[in-house]
Protein backbone atom coordinates (compact mmCIF):
# COMPACT_ATOMS: atom_id res chain seq x y z
CA UNK A 1 0.00 0.00 0.00
CA UNK A 2 1.35 3.40 -0.91
CA UNK A 3 1.84 5.89 1.90
CA UNK A 4 -0.55 8.83 2.07
CA UNK A 5 1.24 12.07 1.16
CA UNK A 6 0.98 13.42 4.71
CA UNK A 7 2.69 10.30 6.02
CA UNK A 8 5.77 11.40 4.14
CA UNK A 9 5.53 15.16 4.57
CA UNK A 10 4.94 15.34 8.31
CA UNK A 11 8.01 13.40 9.43
CA UNK A 12 10.05 15.75 7.27
CA UNK A 13 8.49 18.80 8.97
CA UNK A 14 9.18 17.23 12.35
CA UNK A 15 12.78 16.59 11.36
CA UNK A 16 13.17 20.27 10.50
CA UNK A 17 11.81 21.19 13.96
CA UNK A 18 14.31 18.82 15.53
CA UNK A 19 17.19 20.29 13.57
CA UNK A 20 16.37 23.83 14.74
CA UNK A 21 18.38 23.40 17.95
CA UNK A 22 21.48 22.50 15.96
CA UNK A 23 20.97 25.47 13.65
CA UNK A 24 20.53 27.88 16.55
CA UNK A 25 23.62 26.65 18.40
CA UNK A 26 25.71 27.02 15.26
CA UNK A 27 24.29 30.49 14.54
CA UNK A 28 24.91 31.66 18.12
CA UNK A 29 28.49 30.42 18.01
CA UNK A 30 29.21 31.87 14.58
CA UNK A 31 27.65 35.29 15.14
CA UNK A 32 29.08 35.94 18.59
CA UNK A 33 32.48 34.71 17.43
CA UNK A 34 32.46 36.77 14.22
CA UNK A 35 31.57 39.96 16.09
CA UNK A 36 34.09 39.48 18.87
CA UNK A 37 36.98 37.94 16.97
CA UNK A 38 38.39 41.21 15.47
CA UNK A 39 38.89 42.53 19.01
CA UNK A 40 40.65 39.35 20.14
CA UNK A 41 42.82 39.33 17.02
CA UNK A 42 43.79 42.97 17.45
CA UNK A 43 44.64 43.00 21.15
CA UNK A 44 45.56 39.33 21.51
CA UNK A 45 43.51 36.84 23.50
CA UNK A 46 45.70 36.93 26.62
CA UNK A 47 46.19 40.70 26.62
CA UNK A 48 42.40 41.01 26.49
CA UNK A 49 41.84 38.35 29.14
CA UNK A 50 44.54 39.57 31.55
CA UNK A 51 44.39 43.32 30.92
CA UNK A 52 43.74 45.14 34.20
CA UNK A 53 42.13 48.22 32.76
CA UNK A 54 38.72 48.63 31.11
CA UNK A 55 38.33 52.13 29.67
CA UNK A 56 36.10 52.08 26.57
CA UNK A 57 36.50 55.87 26.25
CA UNK A 58 40.24 55.47 25.72
CA UNK A 59 39.93 52.31 23.67
CA UNK A 60 41.57 50.24 26.44
CA UNK A 61 39.94 46.84 26.85
CA UNK A 62 41.14 44.40 29.52
CA UNK A 63 38.67 42.14 31.30
CA UNK A 64 40.77 40.78 34.17
CA UNK A 65 38.69 42.72 36.77
CA UNK A 66 35.52 41.11 35.36
CA UNK A 67 37.09 37.66 35.19
CA UNK A 68 38.24 37.94 38.80
CA UNK A 69 34.87 39.40 39.78
CA UNK A 70 33.01 36.51 38.16
CA UNK A 71 35.25 33.91 39.81
CA UNK A 72 35.11 35.45 43.29
CA UNK A 73 31.35 36.04 43.28
CA UNK A 74 30.70 32.54 41.92
CA UNK A 75 32.96 30.77 44.44
CA UNK A 76 31.60 32.70 47.40
CA UNK A 77 28.01 31.99 46.36
CA UNK A 78 28.86 28.28 46.05
CA UNK A 79 30.48 28.36 49.49
CA UNK A 80 27.20 29.62 50.92
CA UNK A 81 24.73 27.80 48.65
CA UNK A 82 26.24 24.34 48.32
CA UNK A 83 26.22 23.26 52.00
CA UNK A 84 22.70 24.62 52.40
CA UNK A 85 21.58 22.95 49.18
CA UNK A 86 23.06 19.54 49.91
CA UNK A 87 21.69 19.61 53.47
CA UNK A 88 18.24 20.41 52.09
CA UNK A 89 18.59 17.58 49.58
CA UNK A 90 19.49 15.13 52.36
CA UNK A 91 16.47 16.38 54.27
CA UNK A 92 14.17 15.78 51.29
CA UNK A 93 15.58 12.38 50.36
CA UNK A 94 16.11 10.88 53.81
CA UNK A 95 14.66 12.69 56.78
CA UNK A 96 11.54 14.59 55.81
CA UNK A 97 8.09 13.18 56.49
CA UNK A 98 6.25 12.83 53.16
CA UNK A 99 4.04 15.89 53.67
CA UNK A 100 6.89 18.20 54.63
CA UNK A 101 8.97 16.95 51.71
CA UNK A 102 6.20 17.63 49.21
CA UNK A 103 5.74 21.18 50.50
CA UNK A 104 9.45 21.90 50.57
CA UNK A 105 9.78 20.62 47.02
CA UNK A 106 6.93 22.88 45.85
CA UNK A 107 8.60 25.81 47.62
CA UNK A 108 11.93 25.13 45.92
CA UNK A 109 10.26 24.76 42.55
CA UNK A 110 8.73 28.21 43.07
CA UNK A 111 12.09 29.60 44.07
CA UNK A 112 13.40 28.42 40.69
CA UNK A 113 10.61 30.20 38.81
CA UNK A 114 10.93 33.67 40.35
CA UNK A 115 12.38 36.17 37.86
CA UNK A 116 15.97 37.17 38.55
CA UNK A 117 15.07 40.87 38.60
CA UNK A 118 12.80 40.13 41.56
CA UNK A 119 15.75 38.58 43.40
CA UNK A 120 17.76 41.65 42.45
CA UNK A 121 15.14 44.02 43.82
CA UNK A 122 14.88 41.98 47.02
CA UNK A 123 18.66 42.11 47.34
CA UNK A 124 18.74 45.89 46.78
CA UNK A 125 16.35 46.66 49.61
CA UNK A 126 17.27 43.96 52.16
CA UNK A 127 20.70 42.42 51.63
CA UNK A 128 22.50 45.57 50.46
CA UNK A 129 21.47 47.63 53.53
CA UNK A 130 22.41 44.70 55.77
CA UNK A 131 25.86 44.44 54.19
CA UNK A 132 26.22 48.22 54.35
CA UNK A 133 25.44 48.11 58.08
CA UNK A 134 27.98 45.34 58.70
CA UNK A 135 30.65 47.04 56.61
CA UNK A 136 30.34 50.47 58.20
CA UNK A 137 29.67 49.47 61.82
CA UNK A 138 31.85 46.39 62.24
CA UNK A 139 34.67 46.93 59.78
CA UNK A 140 34.35 50.68 59.18
CA UNK A 141 37.88 51.49 60.31
CA UNK A 142 39.51 49.24 57.70
CA UNK A 143 37.39 49.94 54.66
CA UNK A 144 37.53 52.71 52.08
CA UNK A 145 34.30 54.64 51.34
CA UNK A 146 33.37 52.68 48.18
CA UNK A 147 33.40 49.45 50.21
CA UNK A 148 30.81 50.79 52.65
CA UNK A 149 27.98 51.23 50.15
CA UNK A 150 26.70 47.69 50.64
CA UNK A 151 26.85 47.05 46.91
CA UNK A 152 29.59 44.53 46.17
CA UNK A 153 30.89 40.97 46.25
CA UNK A 154 29.21 39.93 49.49
CA UNK A 155 25.75 41.19 48.52
CA UNK A 156 26.01 39.65 45.04
CA UNK A 157 27.18 36.30 46.45
CA UNK A 158 24.33 36.17 48.96
CA UNK A 159 21.72 36.85 46.27
CA UNK A 160 23.32 34.32 43.92
CA UNK A 161 23.53 31.69 46.67
CA UNK A 162 19.74 31.87 47.01
CA UNK A 163 19.28 31.71 43.24
CA UNK A 164 21.36 28.55 42.73
CA UNK A 165 19.75 26.67 45.63
CA UNK A 166 16.95 25.11 43.52
CA UNK A 167 19.39 23.65 40.98
CA UNK A 168 21.64 22.15 43.64
CA UNK A 169 18.80 20.83 45.79
CA UNK A 170 16.80 19.16 43.04
CA UNK A 171 19.76 17.49 41.30
CA UNK A 172 21.35 16.36 44.57
CA UNK A 173 18.03 14.95 45.75
CA UNK A 174 17.64 13.00 42.50
CA UNK A 175 21.19 11.68 42.93
CA UNK A 176 20.51 10.58 46.51
CA UNK A 177 17.27 8.88 45.53
CA UNK A 178 19.00 7.07 42.67
CA UNK A 179 21.26 5.18 45.09
CA UNK A 180 20.09 1.54 45.07
CA UNK A 181 18.02 0.51 48.12
CA UNK A 182 20.34 -2.40 48.82
CA UNK A 183 23.18 -0.05 49.80
CA UNK A 184 21.10 1.52 52.52
CA UNK A 185 19.55 -1.76 53.65
CA UNK A 186 22.97 -3.41 53.77
CA UNK A 187 24.31 -0.61 55.92
CA UNK A 188 21.31 -0.79 58.27
CA UNK A 189 21.67 -4.57 58.47
CA UNK A 190 25.22 -4.07 59.71
CA UNK A 191 23.83 -1.97 62.52
CA UNK A 192 25.07 1.36 61.17
CA UNK A 193 22.92 4.26 62.39
CA UNK A 194 20.98 6.38 59.91
CA UNK A 195 23.25 9.43 59.95
CA UNK A 196 26.41 7.32 59.54
CA UNK A 197 24.72 5.57 56.63
CA UNK A 198 23.96 8.91 54.99
CA UNK A 199 27.52 10.19 55.39
CA UNK A 200 29.45 7.02 54.63
CA UNK A 201 27.20 5.17 52.19
CA UNK A 202 24.63 7.40 50.49
CA UNK A 203 26.66 10.58 49.93
CA UNK A 204 29.68 8.75 48.44
CA UNK A 205 27.39 6.73 46.20
CA UNK A 206 25.58 9.86 45.01
CA UNK A 207 28.80 11.84 44.68
CA UNK A 208 28.90 12.17 40.90
CA UNK A 209 25.30 13.38 40.71
CA UNK A 210 25.85 15.89 43.50
CA UNK A 211 28.98 17.23 41.81
CA UNK A 212 27.01 17.60 38.59
CA UNK A 213 24.40 19.61 40.50
CA UNK A 214 27.08 21.88 41.93
CA UNK A 215 28.68 22.39 38.52
CA UNK A 216 25.31 23.30 37.04
CA UNK A 217 24.63 25.69 39.90
CA UNK A 218 28.01 27.19 39.10
CA UNK A 219 27.01 27.57 35.46
CA UNK A 220 23.87 29.35 36.50
CA UNK A 221 25.86 31.65 38.78
CA UNK A 222 28.35 32.54 36.04
CA UNK A 223 25.62 33.21 33.50
CA UNK A 224 23.37 35.24 35.79
CA UNK A 225 23.22 38.90 34.79
CA UNK A 226 20.32 40.94 36.10
CA UNK A 227 20.32 40.18 39.82
CA UNK A 228 24.06 40.76 40.01
CA UNK A 229 23.85 44.02 38.09
CA UNK A 230 21.40 45.27 40.70
CA UNK A 231 23.51 44.51 43.79
CA UNK A 232 27.18 44.24 42.80
CA UNK A 233 28.07 47.92 42.38
CA UNK A 234 29.55 47.18 38.92
CA UNK A 235 32.89 49.00 39.20
CA UNK A 236 35.32 47.59 36.61
CA UNK A 237 38.25 47.41 39.04
CA UNK A 238 40.03 44.54 40.74
CA UNK A 239 38.28 43.90 44.08
CA UNK A 240 40.31 44.30 47.26
CA UNK A 241 37.93 42.91 49.87
CA UNK A 242 34.63 41.05 49.90
CA UNK A 243 32.92 44.40 50.40
CA UNK A 244 34.41 45.86 47.18
CA UNK A 245 32.04 46.72 44.38
CA UNK A 246 32.63 44.34 41.49
CA UNK A 247 31.58 43.75 37.90
CA UNK A 248 31.08 40.31 36.38
CA UNK A 249 31.56 39.37 32.72
CA UNK A 250 27.85 38.97 32.06
CA UNK A 251 27.20 42.19 33.97
CA UNK A 252 29.72 43.95 31.75
CA UNK A 253 27.75 42.98 28.65
CA UNK A 254 24.35 43.79 30.12
CA UNK A 255 25.50 47.15 31.41
CA UNK A 256 27.26 48.55 28.33
CA UNK A 257 25.78 46.83 25.28
CA UNK A 258 22.91 49.31 25.22
CA UNK A 259 25.10 52.20 24.07
CA UNK A 260 28.26 50.53 22.73
CA UNK A 261 29.39 50.76 19.13
CA UNK A 262 32.52 50.06 17.08
CA UNK A 263 35.43 48.52 18.95
CA UNK A 264 33.57 48.89 22.26
CA UNK A 265 30.81 46.61 21.00
CA UNK A 266 33.43 44.20 19.66
CA UNK A 267 35.03 44.09 23.10
CA UNK A 268 31.67 43.21 24.65
CA UNK A 269 31.18 40.42 22.09
CA UNK A 270 34.68 39.21 22.93
CA UNK A 271 33.60 39.14 26.60
CA UNK A 272 30.70 37.01 25.40
CA UNK A 273 33.11 34.60 23.71
CA UNK A 274 35.07 34.17 26.95
CA UNK A 275 31.83 33.58 28.85
CA UNK A 276 30.68 31.08 26.20
CA UNK A 277 33.96 29.15 26.42
CA UNK A 278 33.87 29.04 30.23
CA UNK A 279 30.33 27.65 30.24
CA UNK A 280 31.13 25.06 27.57
CA UNK A 281 34.13 23.88 29.62
CA UNK A 282 31.99 23.63 32.73
CA UNK A 283 29.30 21.66 30.93
CA UNK A 284 31.99 19.37 29.61
CA UNK A 285 33.04 18.69 33.20
CA UNK A 286 29.46 18.03 34.24
CA UNK A 287 29.11 15.56 31.38
CA UNK A 288 32.34 13.82 32.41
CA UNK A 289 31.13 13.38 35.96
CA UNK A 290 27.72 12.05 35.11
CA UNK A 291 28.01 10.53 31.67
CA UNK A 292 24.39 11.47 31.11
CA UNK A 293 22.46 14.54 30.09
CA UNK A 294 24.19 17.28 31.93
CA UNK A 295 22.39 20.55 31.69
CA UNK A 296 18.97 21.00 33.10
CA UNK A 297 16.87 24.03 32.54
CA UNK A 298 15.22 25.43 35.60
Amino acid sequence: MALQPQEKVFPLLLLICALTSILVVILVGVFVFLQGYPMLAKTGFFTFLLGRSWQPGQGVYGILPMVVGTIVVTLLSLLIGVPLGIATAIFLAELAPEGAAAWTRRAIELLAGIPSVVYGLFGMVTIVPLVRYIASNWFGAWLSPEMKTGYGILAASLVLAIMILPTIVSISEDALRAVPREYKEGSFALGVPHWQTIVHVLLPAARSGIIAGVVLGMGRAIGETMAILMVAGNAPALPRSIFSPVRTMSGNIGLEMGYASGSHAQALFATGIVLFLVIMLLNGFALLFTGRRAVRTP
Binding site: A18, I22, V32, L34
Partner: peptide, 23 residues
Protein backbone atom coordinates in the same frame (compact mmCIF):
# COMPACT_ATOMS: atom_id res chain seq x y z
CA UNK B 1 20.36 16.89 18.23
CA UNK B 2 20.34 16.07 21.95
CA UNK B 3 23.82 17.47 22.40
CA UNK B 4 22.81 20.69 20.65
CA UNK B 5 19.68 20.98 22.78
CA UNK B 6 21.72 20.52 25.96
CA UNK B 7 24.35 22.97 24.78
CA UNK B 8 21.69 25.54 23.95
CA UNK B 9 20.16 25.16 27.41
CA UNK B 10 23.56 25.82 28.94
CA UNK B 11 24.47 28.99 27.03
CA UNK B 12 24.10 32.01 29.34
CA UNK B 13 21.08 34.10 28.41
CA UNK B 14 23.19 37.22 27.98
CA UNK B 15 25.23 35.46 25.27
CA UNK B 16 21.99 34.50 23.51
CA UNK B 17 21.12 38.18 23.85
CA UNK B 18 24.37 39.17 22.12
CA UNK B 19 23.54 36.77 19.31
CA UNK B 20 20.01 38.13 19.06
CA UNK B 21 21.38 41.64 18.81
CA UNK B 22 23.92 40.77 16.11
CA UNK B 23 21.57 38.53 14.12
Amino acid sequence: IRFATDALAGIPSIVIGLFGFAF
